[in-house]
Design a protein around this nucleic acid. Structure first.
Length: 610
RNA sequence: GCGCCCGUAGCUCAGUUGGAUAGAGCAACGGAUUUCUAAUCCGUAGGUCACAGGUUCGAAUCCUGUCGGGCGUACCA
C-alpha cells in the first residue's frame, strides 16, 4: 500500500509536468507546517515558476485547475479542493472519508501497517556494535549497538535482505600486549586461560597498555606476540580463543538485555578475515596501488570526490593530506609485518561484496572514524572491489556526554561500563515504580522497572539526532513528562487498560472492531488522531531513508500526545453505539502502532499495566 | 596548518533536496479531576537561529569570512 504522501507526490508531479512540459519537476509535497494550512502542502510550484520565469501564483492556479479537472480524478478522492496560499503554496486537506478508509485498511494489514515494501529489495550488510575482546562493553558501544539494530529492523520492514555483522575487535595489537604481559607476570594464567574473567582481562589489558606506552622493550615484545598470533602460533591461538569465549559470555547477555538481535552467527570479527589479509596486500601490490613507504606497505588513495568537482585539473596527490600537507596513506601492513584494521576492513569489503553479495554496506561507527572509512572506501573503489553501484555508507553518530558536557566518564576518569549503566537505569526505574504504584506484585514491579529502565536509555538515545552529541541524564530519560520511554509506555498502558476494562464490562471489543464497516470521525481530536495513525508509514520511510531513528520517535511521541488528547476529550467505553466502534478502533490501532514502533522497531518493551 | 562536524528559548533538544508567523519537552505561570490509570490534558510567557556579508520572490538551512567549541590528521581501533 502506497502512502498518501507518495500518491500525492506522484499525482501532482504528473500534473505539473503536463501543465508545463517540464519533465524533471517535483511537487515536493510535505506535511503542512501548520494545521491551519491543511494536512499537506505542495512546495514545488515556486522553484518551478522560478525556473520557467513565470509568476508562481499563476502557475499554481493552472496546476490547481488541472488537478480539479476530471483527468485528475484520483486527487478528488483524497483531498478537498486544493487551495493556493502565500507566494505559491498549494494546500491540501485530506477528506475524512479517505482517512476513515485508510484507517480500516491499515487495521486489516496485520503487522505491516500499510507500510510499503521496497520495489527492489537489496542485500544490505549492516556492520554494528563491534565490541572489543578483553574489554567490557562501555557506554561508547551503546550507540553503534542500538542504532545499528534499529537500522536493521527498519530495512527488514521495508523488505530488504539484511545481513547483520558484528565486527568484533578480536585480532588487534591489544592481544599482543595482553599476551606479552601475561607471559611476563602471569604465566599460570596462560596455562589456564579459561580461568580468567572479563574483569581480569580488562585489568591486565589496562596494565599492559600502560606498560606498552612507557616501555619500548615491552612494546617490542607485544608486537612480536601479535606477529605470532597472526602466524597462527598454536599456544597463542588457544589462549586467544578462551579470551574471546569469555568476552562473549560477557556481551551476549548485554545484547539480550538491550533486545539487540545479534547472536553468534552474526559474529564475523577481525579474526574471521585473518587468512585473507596477505591476499589483500598482495593484490593491491599487484595492481600497483600499494607501495612501500617508510618501511610500511601503503596505499595512497586519490580522493575522486575532491579531484573531480571543481573542474580544475587535479594534482596527482589530490585528496588526503597529513599535518605537513604530504599525502596521507592507508597503511595496510606495518613495517614489522603485522596487519592493521584498514587491511581487515578492506578484506571485509571484499568478502561482503564478493561472498555476501552486498548491494550496500552500512557501517555504524562514531564520527571520529570518518576519515578512516573515507580512505578505505576510496581504496576499495580504486581496487575495483566494489561495483560502481554498490553503496558504502558510513552512518555516524556523536558522543554520549556527561552532565558537564564532556564525554561520559566515571569519577575516576574511566569509561562507564554499559552493564553498570543499564543496571543503574533499572534500579532508578524501580524506585519510580515503587513510588507511583507500590501495590503491584513484586514480579510485576520488576518487569516494569526493567522495561522502563532499559527502554529509557534506548529511547533517549534514539530520540536525539544521531549526528550530534547528547548529554546523558537519568533524570531526563526517566521522566514521565516529555518525549521519553516512560511516557510512551504509559500511553500504551492506558490504551490497553481501556480494552481490558471493556472486556470486563462484557463489551466484545475485538468483534466490535472487526465488524465496524464505517467510521465516523466527528470530534477534532478523533480526526487528528486518525490522520496521524495513517501516517506511520511516512515516519518509517523518513527514518529509514536517512537512517535516523529520531524521526520515528518524534512520530511516536506525537501519536502518544494525540492519543492523550483524544483520551481526554472522548469517552470510549461509554460512547454511544454509533461512536464506540470507531473509538475502539482508534484505541486498537494506537496500541498496535505504539507497540510496533517501540517493540518491533526500537526493541523497547511495552507494558500492559504501569 | 589542513580536513570533518557543531553553535537554535534559562536548560535539554527537534527542525526532511531553501518555503508561510523557527517548534517540542523541562523549568516558570494560569486553568481542567464525581477519571476508560492526572505517570494526563488545555492555555500563557519565553528567540537578533554565534556574528558579518552574499545568493533570491523567500535562508536556521546554500556560499564567503570572523569568533567560539568538538573531533580527526603514517604504522592504535
Amino acid at each position: 500500500m502506497k502512502s498518501t504522501l507518495d500518491i500525492l507526490e506522484a499525482t501532482i508531479t504528473n500534473v505539473m509536468t503536463e501543465v508545463t512540459g517540464q519533465k524533471d519537476c517535483s511537487a515536493l509535497v510535505r506535511p503542512a507546517t501548520d494545521a491551519k494550512f491543511g494536512d499537506y502542502q505542495v512546495n514545488g510550484v515556486m522553484p518551478l515558476a522560478k525556473q520557467l520565469k513565470t509568476n508562481p501564483r499563476k502557475l499554481a492556479e493552472q496546476i490547481v485547475a488541472k488537478l480539479n479537472s476530471a483527468t485528475a480524478d484520483k486527487l478528488s478522492d483524497i483531498c478537498e479542493t486544493p487551495e493556493i496560499a502565500g507566494p505559491g503554496f498549494i494546500n491540501l486537506r485530506l477528506k475524512p472519508e479517505l482517512v476513515a478508509a485508510n484507517l480500516l485498511q491499515i487495521s486489516k494489514d496485520a503487522g505491516q501497517f500499510g507500510i510499503e515494501k521496497a520495489e527492489k529489495p537489496k542485500t544490505i550488510v549492516v556492520d554494528f556494535s563491534g565490541p572489543n575482546i578483553a574489554k567490557q562493553m562501555h557506554v561508547g558501544h551503546l550507540r553503534s549497538t542500538i542504532i545499528g539494530d534499529c537500522i536493521c529492523r527498519l530495512l527488514e520492514l521495508r523488505g530488504h535482505k539484511v545481513i547483520r555483522q558484528n565486527h568484533i575487535g578480536d585480532w588487534g595489537t591489544q592481544f599482543g600486549m595482553l599476551i606479552a604481559y601475561l607471559r611476563v607476570l602471569y604465566k599460570d594464567k596462560l596455562k589456564q586461560p579459561d580461568s580468567v574473567s572479563i574483569g581480569d582481562l580488562e585489568q591486565f589489558y589496562k596494565n599492559a597498555k600502560h606498560w606498552y606506552d612507557t616501555d619500548p622493550t615491552f612494546a617490542d615484545s607485544a608486537r612480536e606476540e601479535v606477529v605470532k598470533l597472526h602466524n597462527n602460533d598454536k599456544d597463542t591461538l588457544s589462549v586467544w580463543k578462551e579470551f574471546v569465549k569469555e568476552s562473549r559470555r560477557h556481551y551476549q547477555p548485554i545484547y539480550e538485555t538491550l533486545q539487540i538481535d545479534l547472536i553468534y552467527a552474526h559474529e564475523k570479527g577481525e579474526s574471521f578475515y585473518k587468512d585473507m589479509l596477505p591476499g589483500v596486500v598482495a593484490e593491491l601490490k599487484k595492481k600497483g596501488l600499494a607501495v612501500e613507504s617508510e618501511g610500511a606497505v601503503c596505499v595512497f588513495p586519490v580522493d575522486s570526490t575532491h579531484s573531480t568537482s571543481s573542474g580544475q585539473t587535479s594534482s596527482p596527490q589530490a585528496g588526503f593530506k597529513d599535518k605537513e600537507g604530504k599525502p596521507l596513506p592507508v597503511i595496510i601492513q606495518k613495517s614489522d609485518g603485522a596487519y592493521l584494521y584498514a587491511t581487515t576492513d578492506l578484506a571485509a569489503i571484499r568478502y561482503r561484496v564478493g561472498e555476501l553479495k552486498a548491494d550496500e554496506i552500512i557501517y555504524v561507527t562514531d564520527a571520529r572514524q570518518g576519515l578512516h572509512f573515507e580512505m578505505v572506501f576510496t581504496v576499495a573503489k580504486m581496487a575495483g572491489w566494489v561495483k560502481p553501484e554498490t553503496e558504502l555508507v558510513h552512518v555516524t553518530f556523536g558522543s554520549v556526554l556527561g552532565e558537564d558536557g564532556k564525554p561520559l566518564k566515571t569519577r575516576s576518569g574511566e569509561n562507564v561500563k554499559l552493564k553498570e549503566l543499564l543496571d543503574e537505569a533499572v534500579e532508578r526505574a524501580r524506585k519510580v515504580v515503587e513510588d507511583k504504584n507500590p501495590g503491584l506484585p513484586e514480579d510485576e514491579k520488576k518487569k516494569i522497572a526493567n522495561a522502563v529502565g532499559i527502554g529509557a536509555v534506548k529511547y533517549a538515545d534514539y530520540t536525539n539526532n544521531r549526528t550530534s552529541d547528547y548529554i546523558f541524564s537519568f533524570d531526563k530519560m526517566l521522566a514521565m513528562e516529555g518525549n521519553t520511554a516512560p511516557y510512551m509506555q504509559y500511553a500504551y498502558a492506558r490504551v490497553r487498560s481501556i480494552q481490558r476494562k471493556g472486556r470486563d464490562k462484557g463489551i466484545e471489543v475485538d468483534k466490535e472492531i472487526a465488524q465496524s464497516q464505517s467510521i465516523s470521525l466527528t470530534e477534532p481530536s478523533e480526526l487528528d488522531l486518525a490522520k496521524h495513525l495513517i501516517r506511520y508509514g511516512e515516519a518509517v520511510s523518513s527514518a529509514v531513508s536517512d537512517y535516523r531513528p529520531n524521526y520515528l520517535t518524534a512520530y511516536l511521541y506525537d501519536l502518544a500526545q494525540k492519543f492523550s488528547s483524544f483520551y481526554n476529550d472522548c469517552p470510549v467505553l461509554d460512547a454511544s453505539a454509533d461512536k464506540r466502534p470507531t473509538r475502539l478502533l482508534l484505541c486498537d490501532l494506537t496500541a498496535k502502532t505504539i507497540e510496533h514502533g517501540l517493540h518491533n522497531l526500537l526493541g523497547i518493551e511495552v507494558i500492559e499495566q504501569m
